[in-house]
């Protein structure tokens, strides 16, 4: 029985990865693989939705850290949406809010990319 699942939605240039369940050192591999696949497809605008994520350990945070530099170098970003308060607390303890953009709503995370896509608008 798996206690972690990822679903993916491609929305024009933006890829949304939705994490479900428990993200720990065991399940982090699956997340890492999904993120690597997205990047391999040259898709660098990524939103990770944590709405259904019940738990995260530092192994899960490590996955975000492993890819962000590469993604930003390619003009993209990994934005984090809808973390529950207890999941957000873990990011906060490790100083992530200074390094990543967090959004309460998926919509606003997606919109944040639109702004950078169409600076003239």
């Amino acid at each position: 029985m798996s206690n972690f699942e990822i679903s993916r939605e491609d929305n024009k240039e933006i890829t949304v990865l939705k994490l479900h369940g428990y993200l720990d050192a065991h399940t982090a591999r699956e997340f890492e693989q999904s993120l690597a696949n997205v990047i391999k497809e040259q898709r660098f605008k990524i939103v990770v939705s944590l709405e259904n994520l019940k738990y995260i350990s530092s192994a899960g945070l490590g996955v975000f850290m492993g890819f962000i530099e590469e993604v930003r170098k390619k003009g993209g970003d990994i934005k984090i949406a809808q973390p529950s308060p207890k999941v957000y607390k873990v990011f906060d303890l490790l100083g992530f809010p200074n390094l990543y953009e967090f959004y309460d709503q998926l919509e606003t995370a997606l919109k944040a990319f639109e702004k950078t896509q169409q600076p003239g608008k």
Binding site: G62, M65, F67, E69, E70, L94, G95, F96, L99
Partner: peptide, 11 residues
Amino acid sequence: MEKYIKKGKRG
């Protein structure tokens, strides 16, 4: 953390 991210370090 900033150094970690630059290096893609994760542990």
